[in-house]
Write a protein that binds this DNA or RNA. Structure first.
Length: 585
RNA sequence: GCCCACGUAGCUCAGCAGGAUAGAGCAGCCGCCUCCUAAGCGGCAGGUCGGACGUUCGAAUCGUCUCGUGGGUGCCA
């Protein structure tokens, strides 16, 4: 009951080829041994090489003691295509067997799209496995910037893809509401607060403090609400109140900004709860029990070197190479008694993989954190949680914001970051979501404000949306002017679809479930963006080459069904990306 | 120094679970609306896939080395 017609066809080619070999071997036309050679099938780039190409003859030539073209010829002589997806098979080049799709397959594709509707491409591959997708997790100490927008779109779209593939997905935001950053946050607000009440010169602003205007706004809000009452409080209590006040303002703001991008979380997980519940202490304690920690200079250290070497050896790295690695250990508990971020992170991921029972934790991280990946995985391995396999990090390169082709400098410290909500004043959610998901996360993304703002064809999202709108308009016109509704797949003779443009479009439509599968496998939504651009292109070419209105009835019906199938998949794919599919433009 | 990512058309990037003649968009040049939306389509031009060696029937794709760019290498997060 798959609607993945690509996998169905690939499997059939392999089966047909294997059967042909068995038949040939039984008849004595080929020697034994070929049954152990896998029948590799792929899709040629060039349509003149058929729709599917099998390289079995080349791979098996040596084993069978014949040249590849001879093997291919014998296979063709023993091949049975009756009742299959294929009309013909040809031998080409060094010994490829090239299969050409026939009417049955095209007809099945139309039926699959119709039956699937907006769920076309859904599978049960994930078998309900629980996956936690954590993304953005920006420090709540200031406004989010454009990089957070990319991470938000990336994480949300990965989550959506995995849901389609049958995983049970939890979207999570990890709130760093403890530790050093928060302390700096509190100290910064406090300084601004006192400057406000005592005069700018009376209080020195800490060198390490956050410079942004938002800190001044928070200080002013505190002054408005509490006057100078907080001046009297003892230092620790005052800072605690400052931090809580700031978080209470910033957290809902982040939530609201993300929601503007259509991003909603299932879980906002507070780092502070890990400290309060003793979970951090517990995780560190377990590592100590297992002999992975030691004390030095008053601090508690994790023997990361040992953990990493064990990990690399398990993964098959050669011992001599492992010995040569220069690795460093990490502090878990500072000499001042406070746990490090790393210690909390270990406890946090232990919480995901153990206490909350997720099969896999996927984290979207900025590329500048990549050095952290192996260490965290190794630490989780040390806890017996198989972090090397169950913790998957999607690294995201940073965003270069351009204007007039020139880089706009961004820095949170100087408060010059372009805030998320300002960005949306400039460009639509559709454009933002498409642009942010269109580049593979491992590549840096140049985000040109001027380009994103433009509402023309240079902005790829409009190219895709336009295809959808065009089809909607077409369907409406056929209904109103020709009294023709989109027919059911069963009423369509797929055999009348024969132009290169029709076949190309239909084949691309058929690829959607497979593209979805691959995007999920690679955790790479950009594959969906590119697929949709290709699908839109195939439609535009079909639209230019083949008319519907005024054509002979059977052909018009089949083409209308084809167009509607393209519409359905465009809407489906855009929906996955969080982009709207307009009926008019 | 060590670790990681990335080097493909003028620019931005696909392709990297080895397959046949390496693709797209943009920029450039030339065309296509009496005809379902021209936010579209067609054509031309553009390449030592950073380099070398290796693995094999076959390498942009895998391995080793090398050059270049960026990042990491805190009792920061």
């Amino acid at each position: 009951m798959t609607d993945n017609m690509i996998q169905a066809a690939l499997a059939q080619v392999a089966a047909i080829t294997q059967k042909a070999y068995e038949k040939a071997a039984a008849a004595g036309a080929l020697s034994a041994g070929g049954e152990n050679v896998p029948a590799k099938v792929d899709i040629p780039k060039d349509v003149s090489h058929g729709d599917y190409a099998c390289s079995f003859a080349m791979a098996a030539a040596k084993t069978l003691g014949r040249n590849p073209r001879e093997v291919a010829q014998v296979l063709m002589d023993h091949m049975e295509l009756e009742g299959s997806f294929f009309d013909k098979v040809e031998m080409a080049g060094p010994g490829f067997l090239n299969f050409t799709l026939g009417k049955k397959w095209f007809s099945d594709v139309l039926s699959a799209v119709e039956a699937g509707g907006m769920g076309y491409g859904t599978s049960d591959e994930g078998k309900g496995k629980k996956i936690n997708v954590e993304f953005v997790s920006a420090n709540p100490t200031g406004p989010m910037h454009i990089g957070n927008a990319r991470g938000g779109v990336l994480g949300d779209t990965i989550a959506a893809i995995l849901e389609r593939l049958g995983y049970t997905v939890c979207r999570e935001f990890y709130v760093n509401d403890a530790g050093n950053q928060i302390h700096k946050f509190a100290v910064s607000i406090d300084a601004r607060y006192r400057q406000l009440l005592l005069g700018e010169d009376a209080v020195e602003f800490p060198a390490e403090g956050y410079q942004g205007e938002d800190i001044k706004d928070l200080a002013k809000a505190i002054a408005d609400e509490h006057g100078n009452a907080w001046l009297e409080l003892p230092g620790e209590e005052r800072l605690e109140k400052m931090a809580q006040f700031g978080l209470a303002v910033n957290k809902p703001r982040m939530k609201a900004d993300l929601e503007k991008y259509g991003i909603r979380y299932d879980q906002w997980f507070l780092e502070s709860t890990l400290h309060a519940s003793g979970a951090v202490e517990e995780a560190v304690g377990q590592l100590t029990e297992k002999g992975y920690t030691y004390e030095k200079d008053g601090a508690l250290w994790l023997n990361t070197t040992k953990l990493l070497k064990e990990k690399y050896l398990r993964e098959g790295m050669k011992e001599e190479k492992v010995d040569k690695l220069e690795l460093k250990d990490d502090v878990l508990r500072r000499a001042n008694g406070f746990y490090t971020y790393f210690a909390a992170d270990i406890a946090y991921h232990k919480n995901k993989l153990s206490e909350r029972g997720f099969d896999t934790a996927i984290d979207v991280w900025g590329a500048d954190h990549h050095g952290h990946i192996a260490r965290l995985q190794a630490a989780l391995d040390g806890l017996g949680l198989d972090g090397s396999n169950r913790l998957v990090i999607v690294l995201m390169q940073l965003v270069n914001l351009l204007q007039d082709g020139k880089p706009v400098r961004m820095s949170k410290r100087t408060g010059k970051a372009i805030a998320l909500h300002d960005l949306l004043d400039e460009i639509s959610v559709d454009a933002a979501r498409f642009v942010f998901s269109a580049t593979k996360s491992t590549s840096p993304l140049d985000f040109d404000l001027d380009l994103a703002v433009r509402q023309d064809s240079e902005n790829p999202v409009y190219y895709v949306q336009y295809a959808h709108a065009r089809i909607c308009s077409l369907i409406a016109k056929m209904k109103n002017e020709e009294a023709m509704l989109v027919p059911a797949a069963a009423e369509v003779d797929a055999g009348v679809l024969q132009s290169p443009e029709e076949l190309a479009l239909l084949k691309t439509i058929a690829r959607f479930p497979e593209e979805l599968r691959l995007a999920g496998r690679d955790l790479d939504p950009s594959q969906i963006d590119r697929y949709l651009m290709g699908l839109a292109g195939d439609f535009h070419r079909f639209y230019n080459a083949d008319r519907i209105k005024g054509e002979e009835r059977e052909l018009a019906k089949a083409r209308l069904k084809l167009a509607d199938s393209a519409r359905s998949v465009l809407a489906n794919g855009l929906g996955l990306l969080g982009v709207t599919a307009p009926e008019k433009m």
